[in-house]
Design a protein around this nucleic acid. Sequence first.
DNA 1: ATACTTTTTGCAACCGGTTGCCGAACCCGA
DNA 2: TCGGGTTCGGCAACCGGTTGCAAAAAGTAT
Lengths: 323, 323
Amino acid sequence: MAVTIRDVARAAGVHVSTVSRSFSAPHLVNPETRTRVLAVAEDLGYRPNRAARALTTGRTHNLGLIVADIANPFFPPLIKAAQAQARLRDYHVFVADTDEDPKAEEDLIQTLTKQVDGVLLCSPRLTNRTIERLREEIPFVLVNRRVKGMPTVLMDVGRGARLAVEHLTGLGHRRLAVVTGPSGSWTSKEMQEAAAAMNEVDVVFLGPNPPTELGGLAAAADVVASGATGVLAYNDLVAIGLIEGLAERGVEVPRDVSVIGVDDIVAGRLGRPKLTTIAMPTAAAGRIAVDMLLQSVDAEAATGVTMLETTLIVRESTGEART
Amino acid sequence: MAVTIRDVARAAGVHVSTVSRSFSAPHLVNPETRTRVLAVAEDLGYRPNRAARALTTGRTHNLGLIVADIANPFFPPLIKAAQAQARLRDYHVFVADTDEDPKAEEDLIQTLTKQVDGVLLCSPRLTNRTIERLREEIPFVLVNRRVKGMPTVLMDVGRGARLAVEHLTGLGHRRLAVVTGPSGSWTSKEMQEAAAAMNEVDVVFLGPNPPTELGGLAAAADVVASGATGVLAYNDLVAIGLIEGLAERGVEVPRDVSVIGVDDIVAGRLGRPKLTTIAMPTAAAGRIAVDMLLQSVDAEAATGVTMLETTLIVRESTGEART
DNA sequence: ATACTTTTTGCAACCGGTTGCCGAACCCGA
DNA sequence: TCGGGTTCGGCAACCGGTTGCAAAAAGTAT
């Protein structure tokens, strides 16, 4: 029912190979012939079948994009950017959600493998060993996770955390709390290390916590107990939950406690108080990751780590320490 | 390099067709043989190539999911649910973002067509004519858009709007404003019609507006000018922007004006005041749309319209009219 | 043991493209 | 007019599976 290359060949009075070449190796066919073939193809509404093509070329022109949770507001901008960039390069992208389940993640990679040229793994929950093993089967690019020797896109939360701490100390805060994320998170580890290395300030670590508003809500008690007046939260969702939890205890932000989040999600820009936060360049990460992936798809051995800058955005959830 | 059906056949000492049947037509092969073949396959790490299979069967086991804007918080839950449901049925899904551009939308459908068994169109911006034409080429399911004779999943915003208006009148509001969305939006039209049909209340329509916080922000002046004390906004983003804009004018929500949004996005549940909103069952819509699509993929002629219930969630952005 | 079913398996064509190889047609200069 | 080099297009094998058909094997009835 669909029009194939043979239909076009018949209608144009040439061999299928000529039609094929008219599309994928123009210099090998007489311009005149080519024009005629293209015209006939257009006329018949012919569209090459990418899957069939992939069978011989080994290039599907598809990418896989695997994320822990599509609904986590951190990811959609990244997905959007990655998809747009892929499209620019004439690639389509499978998006898959693992629901934070490493098993599902591995399974997905396995079944996707034959249908894609490469996979973007965003904040994967798999073990390093598994990732290294899987790498034999298909090119990867990692986002937000570091595994030796693998192409990676990272966002410099360490620096962001330092800026955040400086911002807080600049406002007179001397005792800070870091509300950490899941224990396996690279981001969380980076934040902790950066904060711990700062001078002239007391830092306590509260966690691990689930990376959600509920996590923040639950951490409120600990924060109060810690006596900290400045808080760096694992992400904006946690920060928002935390502010909520503090309010329930009569602690007002930023009057009594200053709170900084990470990600710069939309929800933080709206609402009240507007969040001071470390903005993550998720869109850029998506774009760059796609380009790195495509590069390592045909370069065979490309690797490297790209570190993206983060920025501190000061809004309303931080203020001077009360003296 | 990858292990194919022929490798398995060789290793198991059988013909490729036997291997093929061991996977896709078990009843046609001796249980003993099958067990052996499966063991060898497992051993070699064989995974059937879906794309190759699609070539003969005509079933790719892939779906396309096309949305206007991945980053719009309305969509991620839908995408997530659709993806999960597809996975349950052993389907993979291409996600594509059109950036609100009808041209991109059509193009995407065209290039995706050969690689998928069906396409989910969410809030499409294409004309009815185009949609009907494209339908010849590939099965569709529409979400949030009505085209005669096409399988569709709708969410009952009309009823939601009626509930919202009743809620407001119940609080004593007698003059309402509806801040409408983009002019082509089915949702917006439904809301308007439902609101207009209500008795014992004055309704003015303000719009069209872009479906974003900025749209709401800009509409604040009109709302103030309208003298309305209750507002139904096109969606939560607009509602949040509107509340912001009203605040800038010294109008406090819900003290001076009550505001109701649509969608129940996360940003509305957090922040302050927490939004009273019409919750859209986006996850359910995603799930059901996928099932309808798969149904119409093999049933060839399935059609029908599914209307999903919406709910009014009362939070903090609505209150009694001042007397 | 024979003839007739019913399973089980192999053969080969096919899905829709791509590509190495070879011959035909063409071009050029001598 | 002829030899040699290009350009162009056809042939056929191949990618990794599926499937209709028929042969072989196994089971059953006589």
